[in-house]
Design a protein around this nucleic acid. Sequence first.
DNA 1: CCCCTTTTCCCCACTTTTCCCCACAATCCT
DNA 2: AGGATTGTGGGGAAAAGTGGGGAAAAGGGG
Lengths: 141, 141
Amino acid sequence: MFIGEYQYKVDEKGRVPLPPRFRRELKEGMVLSKGMGEKCIAVYPIREWKKLADKLAEKTVIPANLRKLNRALFGSAFGAAFDGQGRIKLPDTLRAYAEIGDTTIVVGANARVELWSEEGWKAEQTVAEEQASQIIESLGA
Amino acid sequence: MFIGEYQYKVDEKGRVPLPPRFRRELKEGMVLSKGMGEKCIAVYPIREWKKLADKLAEKTVIPANLRKLNRALFGSAFGAAFDGQGRIKLPDTLRAYAEIGDTTIVVGANARVELWSEEGWKAEQTVAEEQASQIIESLGA
DNA sequence: CCCCTTTTCCCCACTTTTCCCCACAATCCT
DNA sequence: AGGATTGTGGGGAAAAGTGGGGAAAAGGGG
């Protein structure tokens, strides 16, 4: 389970360190892809990625919108691994898609990790909180 | 069950002691997150947090608002544990969110604990009292 | 086909931050 | 009043963030 919010610099070579707390779950490898619907980079542990891929493969009848999702997911996917310092390299295409400059916000989102630009994360946050309080109360917490 | 209201100092390193009475229930670990809707920090015993997380994980759905909830909840959540002196460290993002300076009010709220700024707690209290009297009367108490 | 240029990747080193432990002072309970 | 527990502060060791240099690989031109 990934939780927390961290800010890191992206160096001129496009490298980003991930929080040490996240590294254990990602050590076996990870897949980067476009965030579904949002302007962010999604980071899946290799195991979670496979589960996701299997779920999509099961559906023999594929509605058009799912087919689009398929293309967006797999077409934009890159494998990644840590260097000796716990950093990964962001592919230029994904970095441009998420509009990440020389700083990024790393966000734990349960089964996956997300990388945001500062501006994008701020905007997302304000929208999310209002809905969150309502749903939580409906869960009885 | 957490009850009572206590005032503590936040030292320059962002550490806060929790009331000794609370420590037994939190000894196995805790999760800090934004008090959804209110400007405070919510502290859940690890067991309570997992119950909440499981309820969300059940829903394999993809709706955008649930995705956003995931982000708001898990993104603002941080694991925490006591140091040798019964203190925890407040993450900077949460501390800023709750506008907690060098003093905080620790409030027992049944299944969870809440950390407030002095001003925020005062304001919340006056509002809460009015509503409480109404609700109690409606219960015939 | 070879060599030179450019890029990528890996490793090293410095600086900063974090975490853990110790110590003093005030308070509570007996 | 005495002892134990708790609030508060600070120092030191360990880990993490950041940047840069050099070797290996890839690409292009002679």
